[in-house]
Amino acid sequence: MSTTPGIPSRRGILFGTAAVSAGAFLTACTSNENSDPDGAKEPAAAAEDKPGKPVTIGFAGPQADHGWLNAINQNAKDRAKTYEDVTLEITEGSNDTAQQIGQIETLINKKVDVLVILPADGKALTQVGLKAMRAGIPVVNLDRVFASPQAYRCWIGGDNYGMGLNAGNYIGEQLKGKKNAKVVELAGLDNLELTRQRTQGFDDALKNYPNIKKVARQAAEFTVESGQAKMAQLLQAESSFDALWNHDDDQGVGAERAIKQAGRDEFLMVGGAGSKHAMDAIKAGDSVLKATVLYPPTMAASAIDLARALGQGKGVGGMAEQEIPASITLYSAVVTQDNVDQYLPTGFS
């Protein structure tokens, strides 16, 4: 999707086993008081309730014309509301790089304490990130990475390669006892690095399963309409196969429509991102959709936690360092019927 999760640096550290744990871990960095004179930090839940130095956070993201991006905005807003000491200045959001640059410059001129930016185009917005940093405003770069590490203080985002890798491993384990198994792939926009990373991860995982061959691939556009059209082409081209890896749950809605129209059910489907629709279908267990690989929008809530910590001069709870990390990569957990209840609260519409 032109507005989907972006291009994360591969130098990020693994951060927990799920988005939920990432948020819980980061909230511990917000503690303003210690529970004892020896300096032991209080639990995260207590830390959230104790306001500290007031922090104004500027939040700038692209237009929320996709379910995942809308969830990004909502996660940021909801997280900010949990803190008495946080004021959130949020822009309208735009996919026009010039407009988004203007919105960020307005936040810089307002002298916000910290900026959280999910750029419509990381490369194109690098200069405004540099401008903020040089003005003494630390930047939390959310998901789509800027072209220069000097343009941000901390990057947090998803693992596109890990999405494909975990999808491939899940499918491999389901089909490891089947001879001459065939899989197909419904990718996203091929001009995006994230799509190439998801495909590369998937292909690398399949190398561990010599009984499985990828027989077809179609690139869609991260929309319901494109998902339906491209899935119909895959179904027409392949009379039978054993598994489908779909990069995005929004386009997966269209793919499911095409599958129902074709009356096909001989294969299992694995989605991507973690929408509520996908999780509901997985829980019901009455369709080909058996799993989805997370690209958690809760990263926006964690970005607010990081921004607050930066504004208050704190580190991250549970780590020995005095400063927050430079890079945090979230783990792409596989959601199945066995664990879907754990992840349903993070599902987005």
Rank of each mutant, 00 (worst) to 15 (best):
M1I: 06
M1S: 15
P8A: 11
S9V: 09
A18E: 10
A22P: 01
G23P: 00
A24C: 00
A24M: 11
S31P: 00
P37M: 05
D38S: 14
A40Q: 12
K41P: 12
A45T: 07
A46Y: 00
A47D: 04
G52L: 11
I57M: 10
I57H: 02
G61N: 08
A64Q: 13
W68C: 08
L69R: 14
N70I: 04
D78Q: 14
D85L: 04
V86D: 03
L88A: 06
L88I: 05
S94P: 06
N95Q: 12
D96K: 13
I101L: 08
I101D: 09
L115D: 02
V116A: 10
A120D: 07
G122R: 10
V140L: 06
V140W: 02
L142I: 04
Q150E: 15
C154Y: 00
W155G: 05
I156R: 04
G157T: 01
G157I: 01
N160Y: 03
Y161T: 05
A167D: 06
G168T: 05
Y170P: 04
A181R: 02
K182D: 01
E185S: 08
T195A: 09
T199R: 14
Q200L: 12
G201I: 06
D203T: 12
L206A: 08
N208W: 00
I212M: 08
R217Q: 13
E221G: 03
T223E: 04
G227C: 07
Q233R: 13
L235H: 08
A237R: 12
S239A: 15
S239G: 14
N246L: 06
Q251K: 09
V253E: 11
A255C: 03
A258H: 03
I259P: 06
M269N: 11
M279N: 06
M279T: 06
D280P: 04
K283P: 04
K290S: 13
Y295S: 14
P296E: 14
T298G: 13
A300W: 09
A301Q: 10
D305E: 15
G315I: 09
G318F: 10
G318Q: 09
A320I: 10
Q322D: 15
P325W: 03
P325H: 11
A333T: 14
V334Q: 09
V334N: 09
V335D: 08
D338Y: 07
L344G: 01
P345D: 03
G347C: 10
F348M: 05
